[in-house]
Amino acid sequence: MISLLLLLFLAITAIAIVRSRDTLTAVMLTGLSSLISACLFLLLDAADVAFTEAAVGAGISTLLMLAALHAVAPVRPQPRRVAWPALIVVLLCGGLLAYGTLDLPPFGAAENPVHQHVGNHYLEQTEREIGVPNVVTAVLASYRGFDTLGEVVVVFTAGLAVLLLIGRPRRKDEERDAR
């Protein structure tokens, strides 16, 4: 019931983001939609995902988008028209995703695959095999260590690329211009 209401809020916000002509309004509404989806994550008992959504979605993303808005020239609102191919592709993709959720096992059931395979092994053996009290940390940093290493490499490369593209000299020039 509450989830449905929050989902309705989310849908209304998403439509408003698409229809808004002003970029600043769109940025604010994006932060708002991030707050709503974090509430949904919390209702689904995914506190860590909600934590990340709050920090990244509502916090850092809003700041980064505001910084980007400040860096580029002010965007003139374009005349509104409907791009039919894009709308069809989006609707098709969303429909396929919604169709895919029909195959998902029931939420929270004990015989779901996620509770059957390696999860029990991790819960039972982490203390003996790794010796880390937090199971999530043990899974991320030890059992799936190579996966996490790959993620770190991706994030590092992206940060390096951003620094090379909009690195220090440009920023100093901008500061001088601003003064």
């Binding site: 707050l35 974090a38 919390l42 506190a47 709050a54 920090a55 509502a58 916090g59």
Partner: peptide
Amino acid sequence: IALLYALINFIG
């Protein structure tokens, strides 16, 4: 998490 949200809200 509620405390974190309060902080992020303020910063935003």
